[in-house]
Each structure stands twice: as structure tokens, then as C-alpha cells.
Amino acid sequence: MKPARPVLSRLGFGGAPIGNLYTEVSDDDARAAVDAAWDTGTRLFDTAPHYGLGLSERRLGAALAGRSGYVLSTKVGRLLVPAEPAPDPDGFAVTTGLRRQWDFSAAGVRRSIEESLVRLGLPAVDLALIHDPDDHAEQALDEAYPELAAMRDEGLLRAIGVGTNQWELPLRFVQETDIDVVMLAGRYTLLDRTGLPLLEECAARGVQVIAAGVFNSGLLATDEPGATFNYAPAPAELVDRASKIAGICARHGVTLPQAAIAFPLRHPAVASIVLGARTADEVRRNAALADRPVPDELWEELG
């Protein structure tokens, strides 16, 4: 019998920034960010070996030590293996004697979870997600998923799923496997609703969705549209669209990031949104935005 699915809090804490994504974050600031998330009622905490080559997992595990009643999510697909110490080439401000190695094999997935548990200081993980299997679809379906399902049966995991920046491959997982959760980044937002077919299938099959990347990496993160979309300079036409949306929001007394946070939660398949933060102030700002009501008239005008 499958274990009962963990209950996901409406707002989740994304652990990539405290893995030094793009810039260094001190241990104290990382801990303060997690503490602030806890104080605002967040009980879903997401991390991955990829985030800072294990730094995010270590920091999050230490910050959550001694606490209970939360859901912790980590990921599989990238093993951390020894390497010559060097700056990380994947955008995290860390220098370690480790590098990432893609591995969606059964043995690799089990090893990944076992090593994550050591870094986290935990005996089990609530949720494990197959992370970015875009170029490894068949191995992820044929090997990674069955191994995670076995680990779920063994009680090492309470729920399993897939996390990607695209919607087509997760749709296969929903249709062909018995996953519990999909984490979809950036494909169901105010600017990009291409992931709607996936959400509809998840709703029909009872698969929970965690929406991530709701700001599309920056364009929707501030009251005036930012300069990046999907981690690259935003095309002029998207900046123009975002500016028009911001104007509509303003007429209804709503800010652009407030609407960006609220939008995915309107779909019945979306159980939670995950927002990354590197400081306590960012956490509190996000929580305050998430708590502000958005009038139905805004959604009617946006269509």
C-alpha cells in the first residue's frame, strides 16, 4: 500500500538561492531565511543536490533539525562525484571538489537519495523528484521511476514525482506511471500558460502540482517588469506584454508579483507554489504578497 501523501503547504520555500545561486549567501543569512519561512507558516521546503553541489541540502537540513510537521523535497538525477576543486560552472557561487554527473539509473537514484539523507541529516525524505530528465526520458521512466516507487514502498520516501521546466515529459509520467507530484517550473504563469494540458491531466488523475518559477526568472518579480525571462534577457515583446499586465493589475490595486504568485493557485491541480529566497526579508515579502487577496475582476480582465 502506498503511504499517505504528505500535505503540502500553500507556500513553499525554494532552496536554490541558499545554495549560492548566482551569488554567495552566508550561513547566517541562509538560516535566517529558513527561519523566516517557518515563522510565516511555510511547511514545504524544496532542495536538490544540484543546488550549490550539496550546499543547499546541508543548510536546509541543519536549519530544520529538531523541527517536525514539515514536508521536505529533494531530487535525483545528478550525482555528486569527486573532482578537482574548481568554481562551479552551473551558476552557483561555490568552489568544491565535486562535480555533477547525470545518472537516472536505478542504482544511481538509490545512491542519490542515500547521499542526500546524509547531507540533510534525516532518516527519510518526504518527497523525491526526478530532476530535469529531459535528455534521459526513457531511462528516467524505465529505471529511475521504478526505483523511487520501490523506495516509496520501503518507507524511505512518502511521495515521488518529477520536476522540470517543460510540460510534455511530465505528462508522460502522469499518464504512464503512478507518481504523486509534478513540480512544474515556469510553464504555468501570467506570461506562459503552455503547461495547461499537463495541469488538466494532473487534476483528472489526482496528481498534485507544485508550481515553481512563477516569476519566469525575474520578469514578473517586481512591480515594474524586470529584464530576464527564463534566465536570459527578456525579448521586447514579452517585456511589453508584462508591462500591459502590470498596468491592468495596478488598476485593480494589485502588484505584478502579487498577481504572479496568485495566478497558478487558481488551478485546482496546483497544491502549492515554491518561491526561492536568499534572505529573511525576501521570504517575508513573498509571504505578504501571497496573503493579499486578488479581486476576481482582475482575472476576468486578464482572461
Rank of each mutant, 00 (worst) to 15 (best):
K2M: 09
P3T: 14
P3W: 15
A4G: 13
R5E: 12
V7I: 11
V7M: 14
S9H: 07
L11P: 03
G12D: 01
F13R: 00
G14W: 02
G14I: 02
A16D: 00
I18A: 02
G19I: 11
L21M: 15
L21A: 15
S26M: 11
S26K: 13
D28P: 03
A37I: 02
A37H: 00
D39Q: 08
G41C: 06
F45P: 02
T47K: 03
H50E: 01
G52H: 02
S56F: 00
G61D: 03
L64T: 00
G69V: 14
Y70Q: 15
R78G: 00
V81Q: 00
P82R: 07
E84D: 12
D90T: 14
F92M: 05
F92Q: 05
A93Q: 02
G97T: 01
Q101M: 11
Q101E: 12
G108M: 11
R110D: 12
R110K: 07
V118Q: 02
L120Y: 01
P123R: 11
V125D: 08
L127T: 07
A128G: 05
A128N: 05
L129T: 06
L129H: 10
L129V: 14
P133W: 11
D135T: 15
D135M: 15
H136I: 13
A137Y: 05
A137C: 09
Q139E: 14
L141E: 03
A144S: 05
A149Q: 15
M151I: 06
R152E: 04
E154F: 04
G155C: 04
R158C: 05
R158E: 04
V162S: 02
V162L: 04
N165S: 06
E168D: 15
L171C: 09
R172N: 11
F173L: 09
F173K: 08
T177W: 02
D178P: 10
D178F: 08
I179S: 01
I179A: 01
D180G: 05
V181P: 04
R187P: 08
L191P: 02
R193Y: 03
P197Q: 08
L198E: 08
E200I: 05
R205M: 03
A211L: 09
A211W: 06
G213Y: 10
G218H: 09
G218I: 09
F229P: 05
A232Y: 03
P233I: 00
P233Y: 00
A234M: 00
L238R: 14
R241W: 12
R251L: 08
G253E: 12
G253W: 07
V254A: 09
A260L: 08
I261W: 10
A262L: 04
A269Q: 07
A269N: 11
A271I: 12
I273P: 07
V274T: 06
A277F: 09
T279L: 04
T279G: 12
D281G: 06
D281Y: 01
D281Q: 12
R284Q: 11
N286D: 03
A287P: 13
P293T: 06
P293V: 03
L298K: 11
L298P: 01
E301T: 02
L302V: 09
L302R: 07
